[in-house]
Nucleic acid binder design. Sequence first.
RNA 1: GCCCUCGUAGCUCAGUGGAUAGAGCAUCCCCCUCCUAAGGGGAGGGUCACACGUUCGAUUCGUGUCGAGGGCACCA
Length: 551
Amino acid sequence: MKTHLTELLTTAAKTIVSDAEFHIQLERPKSAEHGDFATNLALMLAKPLKQNPRAIATQIIAALPASEYIAKTEIAGAGFINFFLSAQSKQKVVSEILSAGVNYGRNTSGQQQKVQVEFVSANPTGPLHVGHGRGAAVGDCLARLLDANGWDVTREFYYNDAGAQIDNLTLSVLARCKGIATDDACFPENGYRGEYIADIAQAFLNKETVTADDMQVTASGDVNDAESVRTFAVAYLRHEQDLDLKAFQIKFDVFSLESALYKEGKVAQTVQALINSGHTYEQDDALWLKSTDFGDDKDRVMRKTDGGYTYFVPDVAYHLDKWQRGFSRVINEQGADHHSTITRVRAGLQALDMGIPQGWPDYVLHQMVTVMRGGEEVKLSKRAGSYVTLRDLIDEVGCDATRYFLAARRADSQLVFDIDLARAQTNDNPVYYIQYAHARICSVLNQWSGNAALLANVDLTPLVQTHEAALMQRLNEYPEVVADAATELAPHTVANYLKDLASDLHSYYNEYKFLIDDEAVKLARLSLISATQQVLKNGLNLLGVSAPEKM
RNA sequence: GCCCUCGUAGCUCAGUGGAUAGAGCAUCCCCCUCCUAAGGGGAGGGUCACACGUUCGAUUCGUGUCGAGGGCACCA
């Protein structure tokens, strides 16, 4: 419809502005009084034509080719042209949805190009916390959105399993094995003090076996074998995180390990490639990258005087690996506390001189999450010690509500997670509000004894009420929401849309009855709510939230 | 000190270079003989942090100030 209107306006505009440059902007007015679509074309042409915008609007409307889809046009405000669509063209969406089913809203703009979404990527040093949960919800939703837009999506999780944090973890577990209390002076100064460390120590002493992804590790039980403690602790925590992810219903296609980059020589190769490209230099017994050549505010050390690499070197190696695996597009979803790595990783990749685009990869950063209960901030978890775990949250409010709340806000604004609200089974809670709309429709359709398959072909002309028009208009917007959310990398817009759609449905539900004697009106209405049910389901699926048939 | 993000109703948050800035909660008033009241309708509530620019038009774009959070190591 948008395309159609754009064509009409282009034709009309050409009769007024010969060859001048203009482009058609169409928007959906906030108020129904302003029609179904509006354009500011006359306002934009006012300056070059040096004419009153309303006068221009009159000329445009006069030059507009006739269309069966448009019921009325009018000039409003400073010079807006408002379009009112015919009832018939609004009704079309219902049969479109019912015939497309789960595919309604999907498009092929991604042309099956490969895209990788890397998210969560927690260090294997503890259970996942709320922040990881936000990354998981946003990242998974991004992946679903890209898939819906025709991209070939790979979900990837990267483990920093080779750095100082892991040494720290090892020391903490060792201390626990030896029975050193967390408040003892002998306990590692920056050690991990959560209860889970004691669990790992106990399991290690019991010589247990743990499995994570593709690895299986059996503990030696020997407290003098630090290497065994290290591998066991990492495997144990990866397994824990696997369980966290499972509880959150998130699946990854690929797990990448930092340690593997070292083992396979990719870190060394990357360093050599950087040296060869001439963007490095030796100074003070260290190897430096001239990252200032690529927009960084200072040069960065790559190899320390002790011979070890700084953390960003494996990061560059990892991203080079992504590039070589054929991901011309990569989106990294991470906490905003990592934003300083962006410049460095990109600088490192530029320094390789391998034709990697300047702005590659893309980043989506999320801000911090504060958890509230009973009006007070929740900071501690018994299991993890210093932070609220994702599992605590899922156990308390459920997977659906957790996913919804963590994905329903703009990633770049700070998020307050209100546990009481997420638990509430009332209209306070947007998750239930949306799911309830879906369940209500299911209930009505169940009570109707007819054949649902026939609804795709009923006569829709009885759908003339204001509530029906509003609902159809909303359903019509869904494909744009899916497309825009992916373009903007903004999953939260899907959540907002669903809330609005549910609201339209509830209003309609309260105003009219569906199971009535008038067969023609009944079928048309059932058809409309059936289409609404489909879109609610498709949209909830993008968020990874279930669409229950009963509540 | 420098860099990044944010600042919109009492609270949690949407939103947009354009028409009277929206929703939910909270407050107040209404609506089940009726397909799920986990619902609906209505009222009140705003200097879109502040200032100055760009623009026909700025809450939206730019600069500065203030406030919140984060980042600024041969830590990860």
